Amino acid sequence: MTEQPAVRFDRVQVRYGAVTALDDFSLDVAAGETVALLGPSGSGKSTALKALAGFLTPSSGRVLLNGRDVTGLPPHRRGLGVVVQQYALFPHMTVAENVAFGLRARRSFSAKRVTDMLELVGLPGFGKRYPRELSGGQQQRVAIARALAIAPPVLLLDEPLSALDAQLRADLLEELRRLRDELPDVAMLYVTHDQTEALTLADRIAVMRDARLVDVDTAFDLYQQPPSSFTASFLGGANLLAGTVVSAGGLVRIGGVTLTASSADPLVEGADVRVAIRPHTLVVADDGLEATLTGLQWRGATFRLTCLVDGMAVHADVPSADGLPPVGSPIRLRLPATGAAVVAR
Rank of each mutant, 00 (worst) to 15 (best):
Q138A: 07
P40W: 04
N239Y: 02
A147C: 03
S43A: 12
V142R: 01
D310L: 05
L173H: 11
V246S: 12
T71M: 06
S329M: 01
H76G: 10
S247A: 13
L240M: 02
Q225Y: 15
P58M: 10
L173N: 15
V84F: 15
A145P: 01
L259S: 00
S135D: 06
S329Q: 03
F220W: 14
R209W: 07
D10A: 10
A341C: 09
H92A: 14
A316T: 05
R141I: 00
D215P: 01
T196H: 14
A321E: 10
F90H: 11
G137R: 07
F55L: 15
L168F: 06
T115H: 12
A96G: 11
R212Q: 11
E159P: 09
A321N: 10
V283W: 00
T34F: 05
R15T: 08
V35S: 04
R253W: 04
A21T: 01
G243S: 10
P124C: 04
D171S: 08
L235S: 05
Y87E: 05
L123M: 04
R77V: 09
L235A: 07
Q85C: 11
H76F: 13
G32M: 12
V343N: 04
V84Q: 14
V19L: 11
A48W: 13
P91D: 09
F220Q: 13
R77C: 09
Y190W: 07
T281V: 15
A219Q: 06
G81D: 03
R106H: 13
S60L: 14
A36D: 08
V268W: 10
S60T: 14
Q13D: 13
P160I: 05
K112V: 01
Q138K: 14
S46Q: 07
L240K: 01
K128H: 14
Q167T: 03
